[in-house]
Simulated assay, not measured.
Amino acid sequence: MSVRLDLGPIQETLLLTLHARALDSRAPAPILGDVRSAEIEERIDYDFAKLKVKASLITGTALRARKLDDAVRRFVGAHPDAVVLDLGCGLDTRVFRCDPPGGVDWYDVDFPEVVAFRPRFLPDRSRLIGADLSTPGWAAALPGNRPAMIVAEGLLPFMPGDSFPRMIRELTGHFPSGELVLNGYTRFAAWAMKYHPSIKALDIKAAQGFDDAREPEGWGAGLTLAEEQVLTRVPEVAAFPQPLRAFTRLMAHSTAISRQGGRVLRYRF
């Protein structure tokens, strides 16, 4: 039986990324291969066609998820007692894809109305926190004596004002050490997102971004840049369909242009 979800515009973006991951899983050469996302999509009563998802969004979503997953796997492999926070988790299946050791406490965090329906689609594998991430104080109940991996996929442009760096300051102050990994939108990429057909279909006014990967080192959160991956230059581009593959490899010749096309940033604190 199909399930209809009552979502606001911001929350509805979780269906966009879910759809992109599902389409990738059905591709002849998937990048992420998240079959569970395809199974979830089939259970939701929603007109996914209205999102007008193109090949660039499918591959971009799958590729950034894969690189974020890789960072999580490395961290929990080195810290089997870690805390993992997947911020703005939506219906992401990252906890299943990463399959962390039993000593890891994994928290999936999103709006209360989102975490309320998440158990209808995903088995109980993580702890759920319902919170508005732009509101301080929600992390107070988290264990504060263990290393933490903080994942913020696709979140930065949708948090108003300075609420994203403020949230990161609060989190890095709460944990003794750890890493933050996110897909780092430039200011131009965040501005241009507003005109993407899929985002326009949801009437979202995305805006936040930063150009210099070292800018978060000045947020007062104790962050140090550990890695910047420009996604036009990773081996997985070979799995892109043509002509997107050729266009991406052309972009890769320019670092400045490549950064507009997507990057994954990892920081230590």
Rank of each mutant, 00 (worst) to 15 (best):
Q260N: 15
A238D: 15
P100D: 06
D132M: 15
G144V: 08
D132S: 13
L51N: 01
I44S: 00
D81R: 00
R259N: 11
A131T: 04
R73W: 00
E227P: 12
P165Q: 11
Q208W: 09
R73F: 02
G77K: 02
A62R: 07
V104D: 00
V237E: 12
L122Q: 12
L87M: 14
E42C: 02
P235W: 15
L32H: 10
K205N: 15
I58Y: 09
N183G: 02
A239H: 12
E227F: 01
R233I: 10
G154K: 04
A71L: 00
W138S: 07
R120G: 08
P30C: 07
F240N: 08
F117G: 00
L7A: 04
H253G: 04
V264W: 09
R249P: 07
T93K: 15
G137C: 06
S25W: 10
Y46G: 07
P123Y: 06
A20F: 03
D162F: 04
L63H: 01
H79Y: 10
A49S: 11
A252C: 12
L202D: 05
R4S: 14
Q229A: 09
E227A: 14
P100V: 00
L265F: 10
E42W: 00
P165T: 08
A82S: 14
V264H: 06
A55P: 04
E12N: 11
A131M: 01
L244H: 14
A192N: 14
A49D: 13
P243E: 06
R64Q: 05
K54E: 12
S177Q: 07
D203C: 07
V151T: 09
A141P: 02
G161M: 08
P112T: 02
P123T: 14
A55Y: 04
A238H: 08
K194A: 13
D124T: 12
T172A: 03
Y185Q: 11
E153P: 02
L23W: 06
V115L: 09
Q242A: 10
I257T: 10
P101T: 04
G90M: 01
I150E: 05
I40K: 07
Y195L: 05
P28I: 01
R73I: 15
A201Y: 11
I168T: 05
G90T: 08
P216G: 05
